[in-house]
Write a protein that binds this DNA or RNA. Structure first.
Length: 114
RNA sequence: UAAGUAAGACAAAUGAUCGCGGCCGCGGGCCUGUCCCGCGGGUGAGGAAAGUCCGGGCUUCACAGGGCAGGAUGCCGGAUAACGUCCGGUGGAGGUGACUCCAAGGCCAGUGCAACAGAAAGAUACCGCCAGACAGAGAAUCUGGUAAGGGUGGAAAGGCAGCUUAAGAGACUACCGUCCGUCCGGUAACGGGCGGAGCCAUGUAAACCCCAUCCGAAGCAAGACCAAAACGAAAGCGACAGGCUUGCCCGGCCUGCUUUCAGGUGGGUCGCUGGACGCGGCUGGCAACAGCCGCGCUAGAUAGAUGAUCAUUCACGACAUAACCCGGCUUAUCGUUUUGCUUACAAU
């Protein structure tokens, strides 16, 4: 991804959980925290409650693809953690993408289009 | 044609755009690293990748030899690196059949358990039958004989028929079964023949146990290497910086800098995929499998790569995502399809 890297270590996730702010909707939960750089770092978490390995991989890919295609509209300099909820297992790409943009608006991190 | 049975094969397809992990090539960048960026090519999950139930390779540790404990397996022969797997047999069970299924050693080594029912469960007479006390006969009572019949039970002491008998009973006889001996066939499990014993005694070993065979432990987060840091050791360096030891000097100690060694955290590299490999053919073998020849190279990530959108077609897409690698087992699964065989029906 052009403007972003991924969160890798558990302590990075824990830092965002403790210090960030969160909003949730039906399918996803989003935590954000400014990281002091000019790039975004994104982490996706899908627990075993969501489903088996195949389902978890599919949800992860849908969230990553949604973010990749909508990357340009997000503000920079943020650590973002997206947690999938169990209801996300049964929906398609369109629902995940609209859900992601909805959470972005709640966080006020969507760039205002001129 | 229908139903069945056995052994396999496949696991939606095609195109376009965007995107991701390895690999190769080219170009560019600078901090010249086997780094970063771009472009192109090629490649990228399964039949079970799953459960982690067995077995082996590999790695580290341990190890003179033997025994005990513990665990696993359990008809016979073979295959194999090995197995609890596979193949071929034997015995038993099911099916008209093709075929399928089987924890299939030992309760005369010892110990334990067997509810309820039933008269009685290592023994037994409740009903019944018969004889006697018993008389002309019957009933009742008592004594004795009896396991043919009844009833209970998973199981009642070989089965069935006959002979005998007061009534009965392997007490006796034939056949079948069992056990023992012997002969023949078979590598063996076992099968068959002949002769003998009237058959002294339940079930359970997926109860403890006995017998035979096998088993060192932990696992790729194994392990090997490179190495910031922190904590250390040694040597050297100012004609001598600071502090302590004294009032001063020498000497000693601590701090400083450099080098070497040790150390092994953050991190990195390897292990990491060419292998008991796949496909085809020939040879040996009933087969599992083995040998030889030819061709092929087919993921290697490290928070973890296969997705999204659009279009077309159809049977409208199940179960399920490698994580060191193999051989099996078990379980899940929308469906499509091939071949052999069996039974029934029809036609010739």
């Amino acid at each position: 991804m052009k403007f972003s890297e991924s969160l890798k270590k558990n302590h990075q996730f824990q830092f965002v959980y403790k210090n960030g702010i969160s909003y949730a909707n039906r399918y996803l939960i989003m935590y954000t925290k400014e990281n002091g750089t000019d790039r975004n770092r994104i982490g996706i978490s899908v627990s075993k409650k969501v489903g088996n390995s195949v389902v978890r991989h599919r949800v992860t890919r849908l969230v990553r693809e949604s973010y990749r295609l909508q990357e340009a509209v997000f503000n920079s300099g943020l650590d973002i953690v997206i947690v999938a909820r169990p209801s996300a297992a049964s929906v398609g790409y369109k629902e995940i993408e609209s859900s992601l943009l909805h959470l972005g608006k709640l966080h006020h991190i969507i760039k205002v289009c001129s």
